[in-house]
Design a protein around this nucleic acid. Sequence first.
DNA 1: GCAAAAGTGTTGTCCTTACACCCATGC
DNA 2: GCATGGGTGTAAGGACAACACTTTTGC
Lengths: 234, 234
Amino acid sequence: MIDEKDAIALVSKYPTVPLTVDCVIFGFDENSLKVLLIKSDLAQFQGKLSFLGDNVHVHEDLDTAANRVLKERTGMNDVFLEQVHTFSKPDRHPAGRVVTTVYASLLNSKHHELIIQDNELKWHVVNQISEMAFDHQQILEVCTKWLQKKVQEQPLAFNLLPTKFSLRALQNVYEAILDIKLDRRNFRKKFASMGFLNDTNEMETHVTHRPGKLYTFDFEQYQQKKKHFISIDF
Amino acid sequence: MIDEKDAIALVSKYPTVPLTVDCVIFGFDENSLKVLLIKSDLAQFQGKLSFLGDNVHVHEDLDTAANRVLKERTGMNDVFLEQVHTFSKPDRHPAGRVVTTVYASLLNSKHHELIIQDNELKWHVVNQISEMAFDHQQILEVCTKWLQKKVQEQPLAFNLLPTKFSLRALQNVYEAILDIKLDRRNFRKKFASMGFLNDTNEMETHVTHRPGKLYTFDFEQYQQKKKHFISIDF
DNA sequence: GCAAAAGTGTTGTCCTTACACCCATGC
DNA sequence: GCATGGGTGTAAGGACAACACTTTTGC
């Protein structure tokens, strides 16, 4: 048995590592899936892009750190943010060992004012990103796959849209994220039958075609009706 | 721009934290889902159960550390092992801040010799576990949900069974993990139609009823036929 | 009036579910 | 011979995929 004093002595002998969080912040605009990136400020990665990240503070857990980074750069608190994976290759950071836990977030890129801090913080179209710093290319791949899976299982696409949106806009989100084309009629039917969309009785305006109805997502209904079904399928 | 020297100086100022890995090792035996646990050796958690864990070595990444722990205690290398989540509440360890990354593993509890090291390493039936040390109760819940989701999406149940297994045994795995009853005929039909099971032309022996056929899982077939389908459903 | 996208139904196919009887083995 | 679980088929209902024409707006 190890008493409290011994336990503290034991833990204090463990090797320690600097921890960071990186936020992969997805947005949607102009019918493309985008992600928020800065230019790396490390000379070794000159001109290369990286995610928003920071080291984890002393008394801070990882969720808190990720929310802090998000808030600092987009002004946003309560957006969807979820831990995806922890990356730990000993040589992933050129300045020594750094372990990073990656969080993904989805938000409407028009609703949040970017707080620029000398790093050319900008939205980049996900499938046009070329060179990234650190292992961030790999992180982007993991997060993109995570997102593709996630939007099929949970109603997260709505986080990427304004509160009121047309069915076309919703379909565009799915098509962009999943990189597929969907049948318009079947798509509408599906979402209509789910019963999670509220008709606002408003329409699109200033569009150069027949305006579509605007809907809101009914989170209450979703909470009540969501499936807890079992389906073995692989 | 930050040059290499400055970068090293910067990173060296980050607060550092001891990292551990914890392995949530699921097994299946006597028609129950079990998990490998030891008695905690901390006096504060006297008699409480905890997962197999260890601190992460200096030049070791997390995957390597988790595999090492698994190997040390079960003698196994190449079993299924996957990162699930990183837990970081500042007070989760009574001896000071320790961040742990949790890995889950599935193996056949009869195929691996446990390497006991004074900690009463034993298999415990998952839904009969009462008090656990640290935040391990929460970790178990997260991993159990993770497993329930995972076995529906990927053919992992086979990892919990011997190479040759009866359909009944397979169904028992699903019923234990998902905590449901399944219709025997529909279950058989489903797996038959998948085409991932090879008939070994062998039968169960020494059973007190009509012996069932034994099958093996055809991993090749799975790799070729597995679905990459899109299905929005929540 | 023309371009561009909204809105709308039906049919066939497939998958899922529910359900009952005979068969092979150990004891 | 009896208890135990293995093995099998069918019918109904629900979900999904494919597919074409009319409507509304801006210009």
